[in-house]
Amino acid sequence: MTDGITDGVAGDASIGRSSSADGHDHSAARSVPLWNIANILTLFRIALVPVFVAVLFIEGGHETWWRVAAWAVFAVAAITDRYDGRIARERGLVTDFGKLMDPIADKALIGAALIGLSILGDLWWWVTIVILVRELGVTALRFWVLEHGVIPASRGGKLKTLLQVFGIGMLILPLPTPLHWCAVVVMAAAVVATIVTGIDYVWQAMKLRRAARRAS
Rank of each mutant, 00 (worst) to 15 (best):
L179E: 11
R214N: 01
P50G: 03
G60A: 04
V133N: 05
I115D: 04
V49M: 04
K158P: 00
D12H: 14
L117S: 02
M1D: 01
V53D: 02
I168T: 07
R214F: 03
C182P: 00
F44G: 11
A211S: 13
C182V: 15
D96G: 09
L208H: 06
G156H: 07
L114Q: 09
L48M: 14
L117M: 01
V9H: 06
G85D: 02
G4R: 03
N39C: 05
V202F: 08
I168W: 04
P152K: 13
F52P: 06
Y201F: 13
M1T: 01
P174C: 12
L117E: 05
L163P: 00
D81P: 02
V145H: 04
A211M: 02
R91D: 12
T95C: 11
G16T: 01
F57W: 10
G169C: 12
T197L: 05
Y83P: 06
V94M: 03
F166Q: 06
L123D: 03
D25Y: 11
A78Q: 02
L175S: 09
V165H: 01
Q204W: 06
A140D: 07
T177S: 14
G92N: 12
A38T: 00
N36F: 09
W124T: 10
E90P: 05
A212Y: 08
W65A: 12
T194G: 10
V185Q: 09
G157D: 06
I151A: 03
H24Y: 14
I151V: 09
V127D: 06
Q204E: 12
G137R: 08
L100H: 08
V186D: 06
G98S: 07
G137N: 07
L114F: 02
A215G: 03
A108H: 00
V53T: 09
V73Q: 01
A75D: 02
G8I: 08
R214T: 03
F74C: 03
E147R: 15
V55T: 05
R45Y: 04
S118F: 00
F143Q: 13
A105C: 08
L162E: 10
V145L: 10
R86H: 14
A189W: 04
A29E: 15
L48H: 00
V49L: 02
V76Y: 08
L41C: 13
G92S: 09
T194H: 07
T95F: 01
D200Y: 02
S19C: 13
G137F: 09
A78V: 09
V9E: 00
I131C: 07
M206W: 09
R155M: 15
E63K: 06
S19P: 05
F97L: 15
